[in-house]
Write a protein that binds this DNA or RNA. Structure first.
Lengths: 229, 229
DNA sequence: TCCTGTGAACTCATTCACAGCC
DNA sequence: GGCTGTGAATGAGTTCACAGGA
């Protein structure tokens, strides 16, 4: 089977491929059949040459002088990112943030399905969130076993995040998305990605201050994520 | 006034400084008076040498052979990140995610205060979220003027994010945190940071697949954010 | 001896510039 | 002519290794 050539794909590129895929979905809805790297790059907020380099990791997927086929590229990207198979996830910590994630439409459309919601609070357990009933965190191991979840999302308070993480790892979960503001320690072979919302704000505030607070000292800002021109 | 030497601080470093600050707060609560770079680095999930390099941008702040004073370093970091002044933020889009952010305790403790919540939905307008009444998005300009907000947080659907962004910029907001899955276009001088939750999951799923799906082809993974050993 | 501070080496990522094909 | 694919150049960020002070 002619699986695209087994090149190595940098993680930064993988993140952008997911973005391109979303932009392509929009273009397809709009009835477009072709795009140039320039147009796609501008919609994704990246440099055109960088976009072409990203795509080149999948092998040639465009037509010189013409551009890319929207549907063709879409298939190629979907495939590279793991196909359309559904990915069962468990979510631990059903507070405000957890509830928000539990029925965030953006996940389902990308093939991520929450198959288990867990919390310690008796007032939360039993409630339905995003079409699923919240179960007591004691059942974590059982839920993972039942559902064969491979991804764990942690939205608990910082104090318990490590212990939840350990329990996930002990039942075979090797991909964890952590929203708790702590660094998790995991064995080799387990991937943790961390999203730290207050750090994002803090960086923004710093840049803000740099601009007009202390004019002489200016950090080497990235040229703004959008088209800053 | 001996303001720390005006060196240039890379953005990646700024993000980590915020993390160190949080770890230090924990140590201070625990009554610790000193830390070594090794201990601090392990709690923050980074390399010790990197941590020292990060801190070196603020000028010498430790004692050789001893380590860092917890309170001293804390003050230094607080100062570098813009002091303790409160930062007024407006939040547009009070859906699940918006509501979660609106009363996320982690923000207030870092000096971020939401002073305006806005939404289009008549069913949402008027409700109180996190101690604040939601106002109609038509009043965006008025709210920013009243409150002198300098940071805007966008949690609207993708379709309206750009127009909300434009309106924020037009009334002088120059720091924007964007949760909507689109690349925002802004004039030079405005900073946008993007948080894309489904991309995080997608990258995680990719790594997962790489591990056991296609053994021969392995991406050059970063050595996991925690202490992967 | 211990641990910080930092130049130097290295790895990773982005950007440029142009060759190649339609 | 136009746009893709990609080596080469540049730049940013991380790690190493050691000098230097308590």
């Amino acid at each position: 089977m002619p699986q695209s050539r087994p090149r190595i794909i940098p993680e930064a590129t993988v993140a952008r491929l997911a973005v391109y895929l979303r932009v392509l979905a929009g273009l397809a809805d709009g009835g477009r059949s072709h795009v140039s790297s320039g147009e796609l790059a501008s919609a994704a907020g990246v440099n055109p040459a960088g976009l072409r380099k990203d795509l080149s990791y999948l092998g040639p997927c465009g037509v010189r002088g013409v551009g890319y086929s929207v549907s063709g590229l879409r298939d190629r990207l979907t495939d590279a990112l793991g196909g359309e198979r559904s990915r069962p996830c468990v979510l631990i910590g059903i507070g405000r943030l957890g509830s928000a994630l539990a029925d965030y439409a953006g996940f389902a459309s990308r093939g991520f399905e929450f198959v288990g919601l867990l919390d310690t609070d008796p007032a939360t357990v039993g409630h339905r969130v995003g079409g699923l009933q919240v179960r007591p965190v004691q059942e974590l191991e059982a839920v993972v076993a039942e559902t064969h979840a491979t991804i764990g999302v942690i939205t608990t308070p910082a104090e318990v995040a490590q212990s939840v993480c350990d329990r996930l790892v002990s039942v075979g979960v090797r991909s964890i998305l952590n929203f708790a503001p702590v660094a998790l320690t995991v064995p080799a072979g387990v991937d943790v990605r961390k999203v730290d919302l207050s750090v994002e704000l803090q960086v923004l505030a710093f840049l803000d201050q740099q601009r007009d607070g202390t004019p002489p000292l200016l950090a080497p800002l990235r040229p703004a994520q959008g088209v800053a021109r």
